[in-house]
Amino acid sequence: MDAMISRPRYDRLSLGLGRTHLLIIQGSELPLGCLASSVTLDDFDEIWKVVSCSSVLPEPGSAEKQFRSANHLTIALCHRLSSETMGLRVYVVGEESFVWDINAQCRRFGLGNDEIHVFAPYHGARRVRCAHCRAYTTNCQNTIVTCDGCGATLLVRDHFSRFWNAYQGFQIDSEEPGVVPESVAFRS
């Protein structure tokens, strides 16, 4: 692997100054150790959860909402952000690809760095973007993966792109044809 390391660093979530605090959780429970010691769930005005369950029904007006999937939540979030006003703070907890997907949607509606806070407690598996065909390969566990789009064997660089919301993967022996480094498992 190359020496350049450019991975996101996550700090435990603490409450910034804001009018409304919305916590988004991927899962039905908040994993331990996501919040700063001074923060509790009661400090959030609303909590939205992705519970990955088809029997979930919308609960209008409730401070805690459950969504059947990440897509379901994203659609509701975009609808909400389109009419939201200044003062909202969004906090996101989940897998790395999830939190940065939500981050990207928030930015699309004008939220800035001080208004979105993300925390990915587990980020062992990576989403990889092929530099050649631009396809995404998800749940990659090792430094060498096969591209889901073009079948190329990719070396996953230790560089996370916030723009593409993925790690960069490029042809394994592009620097020296035939030279293939050892595959190494990512650490969380």
Binding site: L17, G18, R19, M86, G87, L88, R89, G112, D114
Partner: peptide
């Protein structure tokens, strides 16, 4: 602005 939740970067 601060009371209404505008971040200082805005």
């Amino acid at each position: 602005a601060h009371e209404l939740g505008y971040p200082s970067s805005n």
